[in-house]
Every structure is written in structure tokens, then in C-alpha cells.
């Protein structure tokens, strides 16, 4: 028996909107730790890892570890039917081939339930070690989204370089080239508007903008984004979910063969 009650249901709506274009089907894993997911895109160069910790739910009952295969587009369709202020409860019985999403309006005058069929998914789970990164950039998530969108109108790939001077996003295409430099800026009114760069080693990595643009669908989840980079290793783009957990995207760099 599984019953997870999330008062801020809009968080789950935003999570689905942020990952449904990158991944078609995924197993949601439920344990005493929380509600989590790890899934790769179809070409296996990008991965999403989601964690919603059990403490973030108003009510969290998960009698035994459960893995529920869901089509993310179908799940997003159902969650779109929840109001932004609704409380969302996820329910499943042991051995059932369905999951139920219950939506309650804040005043309790409208209660809906949507039952979705589960699916069997053979998923490959990757062991991702906690790593020390050469450079970590924290910046406003809207700024990162704007940069990825702007650069993708010029080129297909972005080179992200971190030096003492700041973080540089560069692209080249048929019509020309573009460079955007963001300097460390901590003298802002609101901490979330700051750009903070922690650098151990200079880093320069190239990525496909098609994927970074998918990642920025998570912008509504957090006002800041953290980009962790090490030379020759996949980048981690993390959006924290207030008090509850995170959505992390991993992307393989384009490297010389």
C-alpha cells in the first residue's frame, strides 16, 4: 500500500512538465527515503534523477519498496487536470497495475481521482558517485534558460568555460558566433539573483543545446540552477525543489574521439 499526500501539488505538476520531453517512460521508485526516479533519454546521453524526500509530504505511507512504471506524457496529462492550488495524493495498492492520482481543491469542495495504467519498464539504473567538481556555477535559473534559448538560435552546441573571469557560454553557427560571459556577482539585493562561481580548475566543455534546452523546462521549479562541471565528465544541472529534493540532469559532453 502506497499513499503519498503532497500539499503543494503544483510541485509535482512542474516536475512532470520538466522531464516529460526528455524521457518517455520511467520507473518511479518509492521507498522510506522518498519518491524518486532515474531515467535516461532514448539516446542514453542524458539522464534525469528526481528525488522528493518523504519528509516533504504531509502524509507518506510506503509499506514496501515499490517501482511503478509510468508513461510520463500520460502522467503529465493527468496531472494537468489538477489545479495549481490542489493537494495531490498518489495511491497504489500492492500488486496493482494502476496508480491513482487524487486531487483536492484547497477548500475541499472538489475532489477528483484519475486512475492511470502502469507499465513494465526495463530500465537501466546507473550508479552515479558523489563527485568533486572542477567548477560549480550557481546562477538565476531564468538567466540560464535565456542563454540556452538565445544561443540555440545561432548554433547547435554550447561551449561552457569557467575561468577566474567568470563563466562563458559560446556557440557558432552558419550565421555567425556568440559569446555570453557571466561574471561572479554576489552584490545583489536578493541572494537568488547572484551568480556564484567556485572554481578549482578551469573547465571547458561542449554540449548539445538541444539537451540543455530540455533541462531548462525545470526553470519554474527553482529560481536558481547549479551547474557542476569537470573536464571530460558529464555536466550536472541541478534544480532544487524547495525543502523536498531536486531534479538533476546529467549530460555527456562532446569530446574528441
Amino acid at each position: 500500500m502506497l499513499e503519498l499526500r503532497l500539499v503543494q501539488g503544483s510541485l509535482l505538476k512542474k516536475v512532470l512538465e520538466s522531464i516529460k520531453e526528455l524521457v518517455n517512460d520511467a520507473n518511479f521508485d518509492c521507498s522510506s527515503t522518498g519518491f524518486s526516479l532515474q531515467a535516461m533519454d532514448s539516446s542514453h546521453v542524458a539522464l534525469v534523477a528526481l528525488l522528493l524526500r518523504s519528509e516533504g509530504f504531509e502524509h507518506y505511507r510506503c509499506d514496501r519498496n515499490l517501482s511503478m512504471g509510468m508513461n510520463l506524457n500520460n502522467m503529465a496529462k493527468m496531472l494537468k487536470c489538477a489545479g495549481n492550488d490542489d493537494i495531490i495524493t498518489i495511491k497504489a495498492d500492492d500488486g496493482s497495475d494502476t496508480v491513482t492520482f487524487m486531487f483536492e481543491s484547497p477548500t475541499q469542495d472538489k475532489i477528483s481521482d484519475f486512475e492511470m495504467k502502469l507499465m513494465d519498464i526495463d530500465s537501466e539504473h546507473l550508479g552515479i558517485p558523489e563527485a568533486e567538481y572542477d567548477a560549480i556555477v550557481r546562477m538565476p535559473s531564468a538567466e540560464f534558460a535565456r542563454i540556452c534559448k538565445d544561443l540555440s538560435s545561432i548554433g547547435d552546441t554550447v561551449v561552457i568555460s569557467v575561468t577566474k573571469e567568470g563563466v562563458k557560454f559560446s556557440t557558432k553557427g552558419d550565421i555567425g558566433a556568440a559569446n555570453i560571459v557571466c561574471r561572479q556577482n554576489t552584490t545583489v539585493d536578493k541572494p537568488d539573483d547572484a551568480t556564484v562561481i567556485e572554481m578549482k580548475e578551469p573547465v571547458s566543455l561542449q554540449f548539445a543545446l538541444r539537451y540543455t534546452n530540455f533541462f531548462t523546462k525545470a526553470t519554474p521549479l527553482s529560481s536558481t540552477v547549479t551547474i557542476s562541471l569537470s573536464n571530460e565528465l558529464p555536466v550536472v544541472v541541478e534544480y532544487k525543489i524547495a525543502e523536498m529534493g531536486y531534479v538533476r540532469f546529467y549530460l555527456a559532453p562532446k569530446i574528441e574521439e
Binding site: M40, V45, L47, L126, I128, E257
Partner: peptide, 14 residues
């Protein structure tokens, strides 16, 4: 020529 290797190139499957 630059190439994107799959993530299984970097991380082991569990």
C-alpha cells in the same frame, strides 16, 4: 570530430 558517448561510458550500471 567530437562525439557524445553514452552515459554508460562514464557511470557503471547497478
Amino acid at each position: 570530430m567530437r562525439r557524445q558517448f553514452p552515459l554508460t561510458f562514464y557511470f557503471a550500471m547497478t
